[in-house]
Design a protein around this nucleic acid. Structure first.
Lengths: 218, 218
DNA sequence: GGAATTAAATATGTCGACAATTAAAGCAGA
DNA sequence: TCTGCTTTAATTGTCGACATATTTAATTCC
C-alpha cells in the first residue's frame, strides 16, 4: 500500500525526486538539524521551481522531518533526547499491538521468512528496513493504519536519530535473543505473550538510552 | 504544541482557510466519501488559485482525509468498517499508553478538571474535542508525539466516521461508568491499571461495532 | 454492433512573476 | 556604544499560464 518510497528510484514526479533527496540529506545530517530550509537556495540547487520544492517540503513536514511556521519558513527538526524517549513510548504501544496482531495474522510462510531474517540479522545492512525484524512484524500485523503510522509518520524520524545519535551499541546480542523469544511467541500464536515481549524489548531499549543519558550527565 | 487548528477562525493564510473549509466539508460528508477532488472546480468555488488549493489538499492527505495518485488526482477516502476497526486497534494501543503516562504526569488540577468534565459529560457538545474525556487524558500524558499522532493524524478521520456512520449508541451510560473507573485509577497514580482500563474501554467500543456489523449481516 | 485505436478535451504537474510579510541593514537619539 | 525606529532587502504566499499526462469522445476496423 504505502510504506517507504523515499528512495529517488521510483519517483515519478519532480517533487517526488526532490522529496527523496531532501529526506535522505536530512536523515543523514547533510542538512543540519535545526537549520533553515531556504526555498530559493534549494530550488536553485536542485534546479526546480519553488512550487515543486514547496510540495516536497510539505511532505517532509508530514513525516515530521521539518516544521513550518506561516510566513517564516521551514526548519529541520531539532533532535532532543526527550523527543527520542517519547518516540520509544509510542513504539512500545504500537509495535506491541502489532506483535499481538501478528501472532494471529502472520502466515507460516511469513514466520519462516522472519526466522531466516533473524538468523542472518548481522549480515545485512541494519538500516535497510526491508531486512528488519521489527518491520516484518509490523507488516505481519496486517493493520494498514498501524503500519502507516510506524512506517510513514515515524520511520524517517527514527532513522534520523539512528544516523545522528549513533546506533545504540552493546545491546545487539541481547536484542537478538529477545527477538528470538518474540518469534517463539508468534509461532505459538500467543498474541498476549508476543505483545508483552515486544513491549519489554522496546522498553529495554529506551531504558538503555536513559542510562546512557545519566552516565554522560554524571 | 500543535493539535487541532482545523477551524477557519485562526487561519492566517489562504491555504489555511481552504484547508479548514475542505476539512469540515469532508468530515461532515458534504463532499461525499470516495468522490474526486477536482482542483479547477474547487479553486473556482473558493475563488483561490490552484497553488493554494493544492497546498490545502496536501494537508488533507497528511491527516488521512484524502489519498492522491500521481497524475491522477485526489479522492476523499472511503469509509470502510474494516478501516474503522483498524483505527480502534491503534487507539487501544496509543490511548492505553496515554492513560498510563497520564497517571504519572497529570497534575491534581488537571485531574479535577477531568472530573468536572466527566460530571457534565452529557451537557456539552460531544463533538467538541476540548470537552472530551479522551482528549484530556491524551494531553495529560504529556507526550507530544503521542498526542500529535492521535490529535492530528487520526482525529479528523475519527470525527468523519462519527459524523457519517453515526455515534455508537446505547453505550453512553456504560462508557460513562468506564470513564469513572479510569479517573479513579489516575487519581491512584496507578498507571498499569489506567492503561488496562482504557484499553478495555476502547476494546469494548470496537466489539460493540463488530456486533452491530454481525447483526446487520444476519 | 462491439472492440480497439486515434484524437480531442480536461486535469494534474511545473514554471516564472508579483504581492505581502518578515528579517536585515541603516540611522537617529540618548 | 547601545537602544529603538525607519528603510531596505530578502523570503514566503499567491497567482496565472504552459507542459505533460490522463480521461473522455470520436472514429475506424473487424
Amino acid at each position: 500500500m504505502s510504506t517507504i518510497k523515499a528512495e529517488t528510484s521510483e519517483a515519478v514526479t519532480v517533487a517526488d525526486r526532490v522529496f527523496g533527496s531532501l529526506c535522505d540529506a536530512i536523515v543523514k545530517g547533510e542538512i543540519a538539524a535545526g537549520s533553515k530550509i531556504s526555498e530559493p537556495e534549494l530550488a536553485k540547487r536542485f534546479d526546480v521551481s519553488r512550487a515543486s520544492l514547496r510540495e516536497a517540503i510539505g511532505r517532509l513536514e508530514a513525516c515530521n522531518l521539518v516544521s513550518r511556521r506561516p510566513n517564516v519558513g521551514a526548519r529541520v527538526v531539532e533532535l532532543s533526547l526527550d523527543e527520542l524517549l517519547e518516540i520509544y513510548r509510542v513504539r512500545e504501544a504500537l509495535e506491541g499491538m502489532a506483535a499481538r496482531l501478528a501472532a494471529e495474522q502472520m502466515s507460516e510462510n511469513e514466520l519462516d521468512e522472519l526466522e531466516s531474517l533473524l538468523e542472518d540479522e548481522q549480515q545485512f545492512d541494519p538500516n535497510d528496513i526491508n531486512h528488519d525484524f521489527h518491520y516484518a512484524i509490523v507488516q505481519g500485523g496486517k493493520n494498514r493504519r498501524l503500519a502507516h503510522l510506524l512506517c510513514d509518520d515515524l520511520y524517517h524520524l527514527m532513522r534520523m536519530y539512528r544516523y545522528q545519535l549513533g546506533r545504540d551499541s552493546g545491546r545487539a546480542s541481547t536484542a537478538s535473543k529477545e527477538h528470538g523469544l518474540i518469534l517463539d511467541a508468534l509461532r505459538d500464536r500467543d498474541g498476549e505473550m508476543a505483545e508483552l515481549l515486544m513491549r519489554r524489548h522496546i522498553r529495554k531499549s529506551r531504558q538503555h538510552i536513559e542510562q546512557m543519558i545519566e552516565n554522560s550527565a554524571e
